[in-house]
Design a protein around this nucleic acid. Structure first.
Length: 955
RNA sequence: GCAGGGGUUGUCGAGCCUGGCCAAAGACGCAGGACUUAGAAUCCUGUCCCAUAGGGGUUCGGGGGUUCAAAUCCCCCCCCCUGCACCA
């Protein structure tokens, strides 16, 4: 039999839409039996794919489940189109970029003639919105479509404007400057995907320590600053000399620092820096005037004064100094930096001096090392000269790591003595900056960061940038509080969110280009795309009214949102100003009050450190505690046959294709059960085919029992195996219920497969109660309905039921049918069968008669005692049993029995004789011979029997 | 480097929190058998190694420890994945 899943799904999708069964409105505010679940909406620069399918199917299934649990479920979807990628895509299509056209034609399955029309952002937004909607509908998503929107809708933008006005009012928006990756030739910040090379480079913060020196200018000796850039500012206490590259080009410059947004300058003195460093300073908020150019060697032999301890140290030459890194000067800490140690030793040798321990200044105590860790490791690794770069890198990394984690500053570090390095570092940086002897200089962690245009990127400090002040400590406290109160699946996320909140810095929230909302208080800027999507779940609640009644953007003034979200203001007046009828304003307010807060937010892993964290921050900033989000669910990624998804290179697997090729139910079942929630799911097409087979089997099973009535099953009339099946059914309901509640959809899948095994066993045991089987089919159609709604509806109709199964009540597990001893009995029987089979095989006997013996009664009594003392150990149990005279005469046999029973597991005593008698025919059938239960004791076998393991003799 | 997750038997993947019924669920794959004109489907059986009576041996990244008992608890190490932002 083949089932046309696509045809079935189309039939039901049409009916659902016709009857609007998934539209939902706010109910009684006094009885908020609601469930509000959302997923992070998709960014529409392509079609929806397998990754979306997974992330959205999870809440979709749970939404359907909760609907069947009688909740008023708000579940819908918006589309994200803000930012630059859609702009970029439009440009590429306009340019007829071959790679892009190919990818969108082949992978996104867009016909070429359609594709060529998508040469402007508006067309792209429209096209992909339509495609996304079509894909969702084909997969049977149960959205309330009236609430759908895109982030480029004028009405939505009004909502975002309100958000930013209120954030600013609360002091969470400020202006400042920040470092960005920048291309000097494109004169623009460079995004990740615009990089040719250096995607992994990060921004690192060097601390520039301003050593004081003297330089001759126009015949006069002038005070100057020779800045040392370092990543280990804590080692400044151990500086014994400075390094300069003798062949390097250096500049004597006057430095002015920008001190405010207006560009006011503050004179910072005469500096000597490498030519490259001068350029960096220019890009990073300083004005640099060149006085004179010199070569590094001119500085060799001069001295500088360490600003932290006023120690005067000489400048020596070193070839390892790279003038393009830092300032072109390096402070030398030979006690703790292998490079410095080796270079200093080399230099001393060149002037016929020997480097002695007294020449070094140790500043970090480190266990397993002496006073001079750098010296030790250099000697241990036998590093001969500063040319042995690889070894030196290794030594440096090792020392750095160990010192950072285990080192403690010593008495040379004056007031920082006794503080572990990892703690001291931050404090020292702060102090250096505050005292004006340190400044920050940004660098890339890798030398080559190349823009798509071929130029080398620089770090540029952008001025006048708008920030959201996520670094705000008070704000963070609120966010932490929210996290403490929330639920997370998996639970480990809680810790991760706490970490992320701690680590949050201010975020630039506006850009010069891209789709989206303009900052209401500075219209030159467009709100950055991650920042306009942090509280849009609230918009879902009111979007219905806006869409249905065609409310215009100009009507959505900030005061209106204040009224809806805060109950602030006068409704009469608002209604007059906005020209929105009072009732509609009230309805918006009620929708919000009814559905908020959000019960669950679902997303894939990638949004943890940005979107999901921002969502928490923005909610706690803008809404009272009762409206903070209640839970977050995060799922793993999707791969296809082991390969990562890629919108440009494939594989991609559009959602629509899944619906068309396999049918939505197959796709939904597979994607929600193929991996545990937090794990990555690997789509294998062969397995998807198998899912199809299994769903067909289920449908077939349903058809077999379609003509039976499940009414009036009398429990008392049921056979043991019937009762067992009923027990299994109710246990499955119970487990499915728990699984749905905790988003463990894979478990529902496993239960479904178990159903087949149960049915197999039921039939093998001679079970054939049609009414009962019909009940099983009906119940399972409901259990599966959230996952395979179309098939379930089809079966529901087949069973002659009125209405939609999607709106039915989820089955309720009834404890009175759950009886674990039934299960134990069947397990006992199965293991008995298996034991017989094994003996037959190993002994290579074709038995004529099978003798089965259950254990002697006293053994069951022992088992009972074990059951009563489950918490006791073997040692404790023996004396308890031996207290009884009856057992004492069995002596050592008791001890052996206890050990054996512990091995099998302590289970309740069941009537094994009865079970065997009951299934005698089955055993005889399976082995084709006579079975004798507890008959004549052949070969003294009977005494081998223990509870749950019969003695067997084959003849 | 920091943070989070992970390493299980042919594959995928449970189990680990709450130690013992764990040679370790389930699915898939593979093999044998039944049914069938044949195939598909279905059903039965097997799938770490050894074994002519239900047994024994070696396994859960590596090493060490706790315990009568460890895939499960503790310590150390190795390896893999993800994030570290202004980008969706």
């Amino acid at each position: 039999m083949t089932v046309d899943f696509v045809k079935i799904s189309e039939k039901w999708q049409k009916r659902w839409e016709r009857d609007k069964i998934f539209q939902v409105d706010a109910g009684d505010l006094e009885d908020r039996n609601k469930f509000f679940i959302t997923a992070a909406f998709p960014y529409l620069n392509g079609v929806l794919h397998a990754g979306h399918l997974r992330t959205f199917t999870i809440p979709e299934v749970v939404a359907r489940y909760q609907r069947m649990k009688g909740k008023r479920v708000l579940w819908t979807m918006g589309y994200h189109v803000s930012g630059t990628p859609i702009l970029g895509l439009a440009e590429l299509i306009k340019k007829r970029d071959e790679k892009t056209l190919k990818a969108y034609n082949k992978l996104h399955k867009i016909p070429m003639e359609e594709l060529l029309k998508l040469d402007n952002p508006e067309a792209i937004v429209e096209y992909f919105s339509k495609r996304a909607t079509r894909a969702f509908k084909k997969m049977g998503f149960s959205f309330d479509w009236r609430r759908n929107f895109t982030t480029n809708d004028e009405t939505f933008k009004k909502f975002v404007e309100w958000q930013f006005l209120r954030l600013k009012e609360r002091g969470y928006i400020k202006k400042g400057s920040h470092p960005v990756r920048y291309c000097p030739s494109c004169d623009n910040p460079v995004e990740d995907h615009d990089l040719l090379e250096g995607e992994n480079a990060t921004l690192v913060e060097y601390i520039v320590i301003k050593f004081k020196g003297k330089i001759e200018l126009d015949g006069r000796e002038e005070e100057c600053i020779i800045p040392m850039a370092t990543l280990r500012p804590e080692t400044v206490f151990g500086v014994v000399n400075a390094w300069v590259n003798p062949e390097g080009k250096y500049l004597i410059v006057k430095v002015y620092r920008e001190v405010d947004e207006e560009g006011n300058l503050e004179y910072s003195g005469i500096w000597i820096v490498s030519e490259e460093a001068a350029e960096k300073l220019r890009n990073q908020g300083r004005v640099v005037e060149v006085i004179k150019e010199i070569r590094g060697e001119e500085l060799v032999g001069k001295t500088v004064i360490n600003p932290v301890n006023n120690r005067e140290v000489p400048i020596y030459p070193a070839r390892f100094v790279d003038t393009s890194i830092g300032t072109g000067f390096v402070m030398s800490v030979p006690a703790h930096a292998p490079y410095d140690y080796v270079a200093l030793r080399d230099y001393y040798r060149s002037i016929d001096r020997e480097l002695k321990e007294e020449d070094l200044i140790p500043l970090i105590k480190l266990e397993n090392y002496g006073k001079y860790p750098a010296k030790e490791i250099v000697e241990r690794m036998d590093i001969r000269s500063q040319e042995e770069r690889e070894k030196l890198e290794e030594a440096t990394a090792k020392i750095y790591r160990e010192e950072y984690h285990k080192g403690i500053l010593n008495e040379n570090c004056n007031r920082y003595r006794g503080i572990p390095v990892r703690e001291a570092k931050e404090v020292i940086i702060k102090d250096l900056l505050e005292r004006g002897i340190g400044e920050i200089l940004y660098e890339f962690s890798e030398p080559n960061v190349i823009c798509r245009c071929g130029s080398r990127c620089i770090v540029k400090l952008v001025k006048g940038q708008w920030f959201i002040t996520y670094s705000d400590e008070e704000w963070k406290k609120l966010a932490h509080k929210c996290v403490d109160k929330m639920e997370f699946i998996p639970e480990s996320l809680r810790k991760e969110f706490h970490n992320k909140i701690d680590w949050m810095k201010d975020k630039a929230c506006a850009r010069r280009r891209g789709l989206g909302t303009r900052l209401p208080f500075d219209r030159k800027w467009v709100i950055e795309s991650l920042s306009d999507s942090t509280i849009y779940m609230a918009y879902y609640t009111i979007g219905k009214i806006i869409n249905v009644y065609n409310i215009g953007a100009e009507q959505l003034i900030p005061q209106l949102f204040d009224y809806i979200f805060y109950s602030k203001g006068d409704i009469e007046e608002l209604s007059k100003i906005t020209e929105i009828p009072k009732e509609l304003i009230e309805e918006m307010r009620r929708e919000f009050l009814y559905f908020y807060p959000l019960d669950w937010r679902c997303s894939a892993k990638d949004l943890i450190s940005n979107h999901l964290t921002f969502m928490i921050f923005n909610h706690v900033a803008l809404f009272p505690e009762e409206f903070w989000p209640r839970g977050i669910v995060v799922n793993g990624y999707v791969t296809i046959e082991g390969k990562k998804l890629s919108k440009s290179k494939g594989p991609l697997l559009p959602m629509e294709e899944v619906a068309e090729r396999y049918g939505p139910d197959v796709g939904r079942f597979y994607i929600s059960t193929c991996a545990e929630l937090p794990h990555d799911a690997d789509i294998k097409f062969m397995e998807m085919e198998k899912v199809k087979d299994n769903l067909e089997r289920f449908y077939q099973f349903a058809q077999e029992v379609a003509d039976v009535s499940p009414e009036d099953i009398d429990y008392r009339d049921l056979s043991t195996i019937d009762k067992w099946l009923l027990h299994r059914l109710h246990k499955s309901i119970k487990l499915a219920d728990e699984s749905y509640n905790t988003f463990q959809l894979r478990k529902v899948g496993v239960l479904f497969y178990q159903l087949f095994n149960h049915l197999k066993w039921y039939r093998r045991r001679g079970g054939d109660n049609k009414k009962l089987l019909r009940l099983v089919a009906e119940t399972w159609a409901k259990i599966l309905a959230p996952i395979t709604p179309h098939l379930s509806e089809e079966i529901w109709e087949l069973f002659g039921k009125e209405g939609y199964i999607s709106l039915e009540t989820f089955p309720v597990a009834e404890e009175r049918y759950i009886d674990e001893t039934l299960e134990l009995g069947e397990e006992f029987l199965a293991s008995t069968l298996e034991d017989i089979r094994r003996i037959v095989e190993i002994a290579k006997i074709k038995p004529k008669r099978i003798y089965l013996y259950t254990a002697d009664p006293w053994k069951y009594k022992v088992l009972e005692i074990l059951n009563e003392n489950r918490d006791k150990s073997v040692k404790e149990l023996i004396p308890i049993i031996m207290k009884n005279e009856e057992f004492r005469r069995y002596g050592k046999e008791v001890v052996r029995l206890v050990r054996e029973l512990m091995e099998i597991g302590v289970k309740p005593v069941i009537d094994e004789g009865e079970i065997l008698k009951n299934s005698k025919a089955l055993i005889e059938r399976e082995f084709g011979c006579e079975v004798i239960i507890n008959g004549e004791d052949k070969k003294n076998k009977k005494r081998q029997a223990i509870p749950y393991r019969v003695a067997i003799y084959l003849e």
